[in-house]
Simulated assay, not measured.
Amino acid sequence: MSTPADGALWGRADQQDYRSRVRGCLLGGAVGDALGAAVEFLSWAEIRETYGPEGITDYAPAYGRRGAVTDDTQMSLFTVDGLIRAHVRRDTGAWHPPTDLHAAYRRWYTTQREWGPDERRPADGWLARQEWLYAQRAPGRACLSGLADEVMGTLEQPKNPDSKGCGTVMRSAPFGLLVGWEPHLVFQLGVECAAQTHGHPTGLLAAGAFAAIVHALVRGDDLDTAVQKALVQLASRPGHEETTDALKQALGAVRQGLPSPERVASLGEGWTAEEALAIGVYCALVAEDVRHGLLLAVNHGGDSDSTGSVCGNLLGALHGDTALPPAWVAEVEGRATILELADDFAMEMTQGPALHGPADSARVWLERYPRG
Rank of each mutant, 00 (worst) to 15 (best):
13 A>Y: 04
20 S>H: 01
23 R>D: 13
30 A>R: 01
38 A>I: 05
46 E>W: 00
50 T>D: 12
62 A>Q: 07
73 T>V: 02
76 S>V: 09
83 L>M: 02
89 R>K: 14
107 R>H: 07
107 R>C: 02
116 G>I: 09
119 E>L: 12
128 A>W: 07
138 A>D: 10
146 G>D: 14
152 M>S: 06
157 Q>T: 13
159 K>C: 10
160 N>Q: 15
164 K>F: 06
171 R>D: 11
179 V>M: 13
185 L>V: 12
187 F>Y: 15
190 G>M: 07
201 P>W: 01
208 G>Q: 10
215 H>P: 04
216 A>R: 15
217 L>Q: 11
218 V>W: 06
218 V>Y: 00
219 R>G: 13
221 D>Y: 00
231 L>V: 09
237 R>N: 08
239 G>Q: 10
241 E>G: 07
242 E>S: 11
242 E>K: 08
247 L>V: 04
248 K>E: 13
251 L>Y: 01
259 P>L: 05
260 S>A: 14
265 A>M: 14
265 A>W: 00
275 E>P: 00
275 E>T: 01
275 E>F: 03
286 V>T: 04
287 A>Y: 00
288 E>K: 13
292 H>R: 10
295 L>W: 08
331 E>R: 15
338 I>S: 02
340 E>S: 07
344 D>L: 00
347 M>A: 15
349 M>H: 04
351 Q>S: 02
354 A>Y: 01
355 L>I: 05
365 W>G: 07
370 P>K: 15
371 R>V: 12
